[in-house]
Amino acid sequence: MQGRLAGFQLDARLENDSEPLMWLGLCELRVLNDRRWPWLLLVPQRPGVTELHDLTPLDQTMLTFESNLVAQSLKKATGCRKINVASLGNVVPQLHVHVIARNEGDPAWPGPVWGHGMREPYPREELHQFVNKIRSAL
Rank of each mutant, 00 (worst) to 15 (best):
G48Y: 04
V49K: 01
V49A: 06
T50Q: 14
E51S: 13
E51D: 14
H53Y: 12
H53E: 13
H53L: 14
H53A: 14
D54C: 09
D54M: 05
D54Q: 10
L55D: 04
T56W: 01
T56D: 08
P57D: 00
D59A: 11
D59T: 02
Q60M: 00
Q60T: 00
T61V: 06
M62I: 05
M62S: 13
L63E: 03
L63R: 02
T64H: 10
F65D: 08
F65K: 06
F65W: 14
E66T: 09
E66H: 11
E66L: 08
S67Y: 01
S67L: 02
S67P: 04
S67G: 11
S67R: 01
S67A: 13
S67E: 02
N68A: 15
N68H: 15
L69M: 15
A71H: 00
A71Y: 00
Q72P: 02
S73P: 08
S73E: 01
S73I: 04
S73L: 03
L74T: 07
L74N: 03
T78N: 07
T78M: 10
T78P: 09
G79P: 04
G79E: 04
C80T: 07
R81T: 15
R81Q: 15
I83M: 00
V85G: 01
V85D: 01
V85C: 03
S87L: 06
G89M: 10
V91I: 15
P93Y: 10
P93L: 06
P93C: 09
H96I: 06
H96P: 05
H96C: 04
H98E: 02
H98V: 03
H98T: 04
V99I: 15
V99H: 09
I100H: 08
I100R: 07
A101T: 08
A101S: 11
A101V: 10
A101Q: 06
E104H: 12
G105I: 02
P107W: 01
A108L: 12
A108G: 12
W109M: 03
P110M: 03
P110Y: 07
P110G: 05
G111R: 13
P112S: 13
P112F: 11
P112V: 14
P112Y: 07
